[in-house]
Design a protein around this nucleic acid. Sequence first.
DNA 1: GCCCAGGTATAAA
DNA 2: TTTATACATGGG
Length: 282
Amino acid sequence: MTNAGIELPVTKDFDLAQTLNCGQCFRWNTQPDGSYLGIALGHVLHIIETDRTVLLADCTEQEFRQIWCDYFDCNFDYGQVRDTLAHCDPVLAQAARFAPGMRILRQDPWETLVSFIISQNNNIPRITGIVDRLCNLFGESLGEFSSFPTAERLANLTENDLAPLRSGFRAKYILSAAQHVASGNVELAALRTMSIDEARQKLMTIHGVGPKVAECALLYGLHRLEAFPMDVWMKRAMATLFPNKTPTDFGEYAGIAQQYIFHYSRNNPQLFENSKQTVAIK
DNA sequence: GCCCAGGTATAAA
DNA sequence: TTTATACATGGG
């Protein structure tokens, strides 16, 4: 392997570990040397982070412009958003300081939708395993990785075909998503310009997509930053940290706000240990 | 064995 | 309309 590639400066606004390990993506593997090897948008990439730079190894200028610049949302000023959110609430300010380098990736909508269907009532190591098996079995080989299988490929399969994934009750949900997307009933690209309510309703026509998965697909897959994928766990944290606030109070960056809070709360469980039961938030 | 995992569909109250 | 339970699987 040569040392050629694209070097990005390490700044307070871009931290690889915070971004890739916060649960928004499932196809980046930490290597023994601390670097990341993964695949996104059909491209394999090796990322080596040092004190001063993030090296996208063997990445050409053209590939960076066409793929990774957009994927890592390089042209968006997360520092400014972080400052804006920090002014909303002191606890949110603390949460933002805790993970200042977290970014919302611009992932493939279809892959993201399926990944978060798989994520329901599941844990990250197992989600990763199921996604890996899905790609290896039905995707196309790209060196040491396999691409994420298309909706068209999966739409013709049966639950029995998906048995090797060991995805449990989620297999039929994956097939429903594939059929809706392949048939054009759910047109993912159109969800970018639809109102957030319409887009959420459209996604929920898929069997196995409820409010949480729909919101995750909108935030992580379609970069709708106003989406707020609150789950049971998050509601608990929210109720404790922000008893008088709703997601809309955080405006168009609600999703980013939640990522900060989620990360912060998970790593500081003592902050909400007194709220044992789920509390609904409007 | 028991509990839980960034939920959802379905039945029952 | 709100609340309870099953759902597949595997790690801690």
